[in-house]
Write a protein that binds this DNA or RNA. Structure first.
Length: 285
DNA sequence: ACAGGCTCCTGCAGGC
DNA sequence: TGCCTGCAGGAGCCTG
């Protein structure tokens, strides 16, 4: 399940590989589910477009592109400026954004293929179709900002303000993308363990000092996970098909019944905010 | 405005 | 062996 570190790893990998590349042809499947923008609109806009950069915003991969050069004699080309495009990819649960040779086998659940001039392809593959593909034309639409605040750089005061007065559990609040974007189930559980806070604790009951420790721990966990290429649980791989290693550092996530690496107590799993939630009953009070 | 629950979707694991 | 059931979860939607 791709969260911030996995999406960051993929975005960096794709950026390295496709920066400057021009799209020769674009193909989009007809399934409704992953498409926030219609397949035909995405195909038309992306054909001939050129990658300027690829970045992460929350759990989204945002590809910045310059549009195709204007055809001779076309009207409305103000000062010859090409339209700026954003192709926004959300991986959902099982989505993959891969850079492959165009001769590589097209696997099941491939929803988009962008053929580059040099014979490579960018492919979006998503079995469960919880992912989303969106195209924005910045001449007519606002640039994508993401729903919430970036957790890696948020300041203490802003972090505190996000949770102030919230009666929901701190776990649910961490998962709320309208507050912080990019945090998912794994890194919420892992950061709460590192500061000894029970996931069920109501957010507004946390002291300023606790919230500050949580902010620091969250940033440390996310940063370390990025350095290790993310967590490979289920079928996560980066843009090159390579697995990450942060799953080896997990202290609670996916460790139900196993002994806590700090105190030896059995790690527990409960349902919270509709999600599996892992914690140590002794270390987290 | 906010909180919580349901739903989408497929692959896989576990049970009989 | 093979079928069935339940579970995984990001986020949009609906309800209270």
């Amino acid at each position: 399940m791709p969260e911030l570190p996995e999406v960051e790893t993929i975005a960096r990998g794709v950026d390295e590989r496709v920066r400057g590349a021009r799209i020769l042809a674009a193909w989009f499947g007809s399934h409704r589910e992953p498409m926030k923008t219609s397949p035909r609109v995405q195909e038309k806009a992306l054909t001939g477009a050129q990658f300027a950069s690829v970045r992460r915003v929350g759990k989204h991969i945002v590809c910045h592109l310059t549009g195709p050069a204007h055809q001779p004699g076309s009207l409305g080309a103000e000062s010859g400026q090409s339209p700026e495009l954003q192709w926004i990819v959300h991986l959902g649960m099982t989505g993959r954004l891969l850079v492959t040779d165009s001769a590589a086998e097209v696997v099941a659940h491939t929803h988009a293929r962008l053929t580059l001039e040099d014979g490579r392809e960018i492919r979006f593959v998503d079995a469960r179709r919880f992912g989303r593909l969106e195209l924005r034309n910045l001449r007519h639409q606002q640039a994508f900002q993401g729903p919430g605040t970036e957790p890696l750089t948020i300041a203490p005061e802003a972090f505190h303000a996000l949770f102030h007065g919230r009666k929901t559990s701190i776990k649910a609040a961490l998962l709320n993308q309208n507050l912080l974007h990019g945090v998912g189930n794994i890194y919420a559980d892992e950061s709460l363990f590192r500061v000894g806070i029970r996931p069920q604790t109501r957010a507004h009951r946390l002291t300023r000092a606790q919230l500050e420790r949580l902010r620091v721990a969250l940033q440390e966990v996310l940063t370390q996970a990025i350095q290790l290429g993310g967590s490979s649980v289920s079928d996560y791989v980066d843009a090159n098909g390579v697995k990450g290693f942060f799953q080896l550092e997990h202290r609670v996530y996916g460790r139900e019944g196993q002994s806590c690496r700090v105190c030896g107590a059995a790690i527990r799993r409960v349902q919270l905010a509709g999600r599996s939630t892992h914690f140590c009953p002794a270390c987290q009070r």
